[in-house]
Simulated scan of single mutants.
Amino acid sequence: MSRRFRLAHLSDPHLTDPRPRLRQLCSKRLLGWLSWRLRRRREHRPEVLAALVADLRRQAPDHTVVTGDLTQIALPHECREAAAWLATLGPPAQVSVIPGNHDRYVAENAADTLARWAPYCQSGRFPYVRALGTIHLIGLDSAPPTAPFLATGALGAAQCRRLETLLAETQGCRIVAIHHPPHPEAVKARKRLTDRDRLLAVLRRHGCELVLHGHSHHWQLHWLEGPAGPIPCLGVPSASALGRRRGYRARYHLYDIETAADGWRIEVSIRGLDPASRAFRHEGGFRLHCRS
């Protein structure tokens, strides 16, 4: 029996408190800041995120992936705070991150914002691949800035071509991480991945063993078409959510991955916030058998 590899997946922590200057609100950021002040700050709680991180440490994953939306409106000080928080999860060799739409709220100088996360995303070149033994984690960037009232994503033709090359050349268990879910039923139109058909075509041709996403703030399991059978596509809720809306309470996943005779066996463990104790506990799980 081969050694199991434990991968943790969390998303959308929205961990920062935006403190904009007046001039920084002369953009789409005004809408995001108002949303935070009027609603989101009551739902996304630092004590919930702290409880998740404490539980995550007890589970001792080999690697952790964060699928975006670390900030609220991508102010430079938010990106600095998010970089400091990533360091609490572990060194860059043990933590990977990809951006979400809140992390690119407006066009901004990258040196002041996402460049601070470069050690956690292979210097910010997307798609990137992390070789974790026989497991390869491929990080995509689906979060260009968008117009007000939109939270859509896009990969672009160049990134999809590079992904196709990586999937064709990479052996082992290939896990694709993306912020926006590629399944057409996962989110409303204003939050969709606009070029998902291009991504789905790449996956139909070359496959992968697992797709991980965030963005919807809801637990989701969908199946995508692959050359050797369906590809599981899993999303997790916000890592900091109290869960005032049904189904949106904070959760994260653990994936225990090992080789099987004809592919990969993945044990999925769901850990979620207990509203009474405000601690995280095991909420069930299931097994995936992914054929190579």
Results as ranks from 00 to 15, higher is better:
residue 5 F to A: 02
residue 6 R to V: 06
residue 7 L to V: 05
residue 9 H to G: 03
residue 10 L to A: 08
residue 12 D to H: 07
residue 14 H to V: 03
residue 17 D to Q: 13
residue 26 C to A: 15
residue 37 R to K: 14
residue 40 R to L: 01
residue 42 R to L: 05
residue 52 L to N: 09
residue 56 L to Q: 07
residue 56 L to C: 02
residue 61 P to C: 05
residue 61 P to R: 09
residue 64 T to H: 00
residue 64 T to Y: 01
residue 64 T to V: 15
residue 65 V to F: 08
residue 68 G to M: 06
residue 69 D to I: 01
residue 70 L to R: 06
residue 70 L to G: 13
residue 70 L to W: 13
residue 73 I to A: 10
residue 74 A to G: 12
residue 75 L to Y: 10
residue 79 C to W: 12
residue 81 E to P: 00
residue 82 A to Q: 06
residue 88 T to N: 05
residue 92 P to T: 08
residue 95 V to M: 08
residue 96 S to D: 14
residue 99 P to I: 06
residue 99 P to R: 08
residue 102 H to K: 11
residue 103 D to T: 12
residue 103 D to R: 11
residue 105 Y to G: 08
residue 107 A to K: 13
residue 107 A to L: 07
residue 108 E to P: 00
residue 115 A to M: 08
residue 126 F to M: 04
residue 129 V to P: 01
residue 131 A to L: 03
residue 135 I to Q: 13
residue 140 L to S: 06
residue 142 S to Q: 07
residue 150 L to I: 03
residue 150 L to P: 05
residue 152 T to A: 08
residue 153 G to P: 06
residue 154 A to I: 01
residue 159 Q to D: 09
residue 160 C to W: 07
residue 164 E to N: 11
residue 165 T to D: 11
residue 166 L to S: 05
residue 167 L to E: 07
residue 170 T to M: 03
residue 177 A to V: 03
residue 177 A to T: 11
residue 178 I to A: 12
residue 186 A to V: 03
residue 187 V to H: 10
residue 189 A to L: 09
residue 196 R to I: 01
residue 206 H to M: 00
residue 208 C to I: 02
residue 210 L to V: 09
residue 211 V to C: 12
residue 212 L to Q: 14
residue 212 L to F: 11
residue 213 H to F: 14
residue 213 H to C: 10
residue 224 L to P: 01
residue 227 P to F: 07
residue 229 G to Y: 09
residue 231 I to R: 08
residue 232 P to Q: 10
residue 232 P to L: 05
residue 232 P to M: 09
residue 232 P to I: 02
residue 235 G to V: 05
residue 238 S to E: 07
residue 242 L to T: 12
residue 245 R to A: 10
residue 247 G to P: 04
residue 250 A to L: 07
residue 251 R to D: 08
residue 255 Y to E: 03
residue 256 D to E: 15
residue 258 E to I: 02
residue 264 W to L: 01
residue 264 W to M: 04
residue 264 W to I: 02
residue 271 R to A: 00
residue 273 L to K: 11
residue 278 R to L: 15
residue 278 R to N: 11
residue 282 H to R: 13
residue 290 C to I: 01
residue 290 C to D: 00
residue 291 R to W: 01
